[in-house]
Structure formats: C-alpha cells, structure tokens
Design a protein around this nucleic acid. Structure first.
Lengths: 179, 179
DNA sequence: ATGGGCATGTAACGAGTTACATGATTTT
DNA sequence: AAAATCATGTAACTCGTTACATGCCCAT
C-alpha cells in the first residue's frame, strides 16, 4: 500500500508536527530555515507533496476564505500522518550524509588551475563561512531563551561549530598553498 | 550554442583531465573516490554524459576490440574539452555547498522522538565517522609520497579534518543529551 | 506607480536513480 | 559451482528545478 515517501514529504510533515497548522507558503518559509543542513524544496515541490499527503490522508487541508485575496489553505497532520512521521523520526538508522562541495571538487582538479586562483576560491569560501557564522550567531541569540526551540537550537549550534571547522580548515590550507 | 552542462559532465571531464584515457567503467570507479565531497553519478548517468560530451566533441571515443568480451570504448578529452573544463575550474565563483544531513534533520524534529533514540543516532553517527576516518587515513598513506596526487591529497586531508570535526561535535552533543 | 511580499498553482524540462538486460572472465 | 568483477547499455520512473501565470495588499 505505502510507497516510500521522499525526504521532502517528511520535511513537510515535520514542519507540521509542531502542532501549528500552516499554509504551503508558510511551510516554504520554514523549510528555508533548514537549508544549512538540508536543502529546502522549491515551493512547487512543497505544493506537490501537500497534494500527495492529502491523497494519502496524512494531512488535512482546510480552506480559509480570504477577503479579496485568493483563498488560503492551511494544513494539519492527521493522526495517521503523525504516526507515519513519528515512525520515520524514531528509526535510528540514518541515510548517509550527502555533500556537494564545489570548492573541494575544483581543488581536486587543481592541476588545471593556477595556485593564485585556488587561493582566491579559498578566500571566497572563508568569506562565505564568515557570513554564515554571522547569521547563525543571530539565530542562536533569538532561540537562546525559547524552550520550544530546544532541538532547533541544538542543530543551529551544530551548524555553528561545523562552519567554524570549515573556516579553520580553509585557513590552514590557504597558508599551506601561499606561504 | 552551449547549453550549460551539469556538474556530472565536469566530473567526467575532470577525471579525463589527468591525461589517461579511460573507459566508462573506469570513470565510474574513479568517481566513487570523490564521494566524500561530491556524490558519484550512477553508471547509467556517466554513459549518458559521455554520449553528450561526444556529441559536443568535447571527448573522443576509441573502440578497443576485446577478445571474446564485448568491445571496450576508451575516452579522451579533445582540445575543446580541455578548454571548456579548464575554464570551468578556473572560474573562482563557487556554487553554494549543499548538504543533506539526515541526522540533523531528525534532530531538528527531536520532539517526536525519545532522547535515548537521539542518543543512539548520535552513537551511530560517531561510528560512521570513525569508519570514514579509518578509510581516509589509509588513503592518505597511499598518496603521501605521490606528487601526481598532490591536489587529491589536499582534499583527502580536508575531509579528514572535516570528519574529525563532525565526530567532535557529535560527541559534545551526546554528552549534553546524556549527562 | 513601482516593487516587494502574500498566496497558489501549472508546465516543461533536466538530472539522476533503480531496475532490466547481457555475457565473458576471474576469483573463491 | 557460485559469486564477484569487468563492461556496456536501455527503460521507466521520480524528484526537483525554473519559468510561467495570476492577482491582491502594502509600503515607499
């Protein structure tokens, strides 16, 4: 009966699992907050997933008539949806981490570039890390005192340390390449 | 004239850029060596890319008749292919890093699991890190004295530090969750 | 009035996977 | 004798993206 659902489905269900009913638009916005560790699906994909989840009776849609504006639909997890999602979360077997790291890819083919160009890429990357760290620090502050976001805070923390590590590694390599 | 090529195309060209002509099968094997920082395309995808590159005259195919076995085709970069690939490598603007980190995703939805289950996931992840570190250490040794693989060695080094950092972060979090 | 945000959806396309398919050689 | 490796390719399918499309509201 149950075909396997893609991760995007679980992301959508997960964002609904906090209890607050959300519109597709809201889900899209929240999904972008995950993008440091999991890419946010395009909004078209989110609407597709919502239709599928509705067909499978894992979520219910409620029409909210808007004055003037086109109608809004807000979605909520059903009991079945909650059960399916919970089962997924509680499965401790983890899919492998997938990383697409364009800098490392180009570095691997470094024989086709000049060292100065590789140094420039590393410098760019360090700048990207710094920007991300700045953003994460702000988010960290916002979540610091909110017990409802305890798990989100742990993940932000993880990402902060991760970006710090990346920056350190990049620095070390830059010094190695440019002595 | 030139539609944009997907990254898989550049991976294939990159693996041919070392000068050694390779069969599709060989390319597939080498691509798996990149999988710590960029997912290796399925073999069917590699054959597709080779056809496309051939159509665009970026690679040439040479038939090598085999005794008994089905014929083997080995591919080589053309001058045009080398130029296209080099231009790509030398472009210092980098696409953003994309990460799919199932552990962090489940952790984000930690309110739907029991702490013990999250701890188990972290323990699993630490084990995965240790395994990866072991493999990377072996690869490091094999490449240590080979100047032809200098850039590959830098990337392996990067990955080693990266996995170490992940393990450290996971450990810290595990202690935080299970005091 | 112009641009951005809210809000939803479809269409066309491409990338990429899994499964299907074949068959010889080498290793266990 | 069975399993793994070498070697190549097609078919069916899903996922996911970008572009297209609409239209209101609010701020500048």
């Amino acid at each position: 009966m149950n075909k396997k659902l893609p991760t995007s489905s679980y992301i959508v269900m997960g964002l609904l699992s906090f209890g607050e009913p959300l519109s597709g638009y809201e889900i899209r916005k929240r999904a972008h907050e995950l993008s440091h560790f999991y890419p946010a699906p395009a909004h078209s994909q989110i609407y597709k997933e919502l239709r599928r989840l509705e067909d499978n009776e894992l979520v219910t849609a409620e029409d909210v008539p808007q004055d003037g504006k086109p109608d809004k639909q807000i979605f909520e997890l059903t009991a079945a949806g909650t059960a399916v999602f919970q089962k997924w979360v509680q499965n401790t077997a983890l899919d492998p981490v997938v990383q697409k790291h364009p800098l490392l890819l180009k570095l691997y083919f470094g024989h086709m570039a000049q060292p100065a160009q590789l140094a420039e890429m590393l410098t760019n990357y360090i700048a990207q890390c710094n920007e991300a760290l700045g953003q994460l620090a702000i988010v960290q502050e916002f979540m610091a005192e909110d017990p409802e976001q305890a798990y989100a805070a742990l993940v932000v923390d993880w990402n902060y340390h991760h970006m710090e590590a990346e920056r350190t590694i990049a620095h070390r390599l830059l010094e190695q390449i440019r002595p």
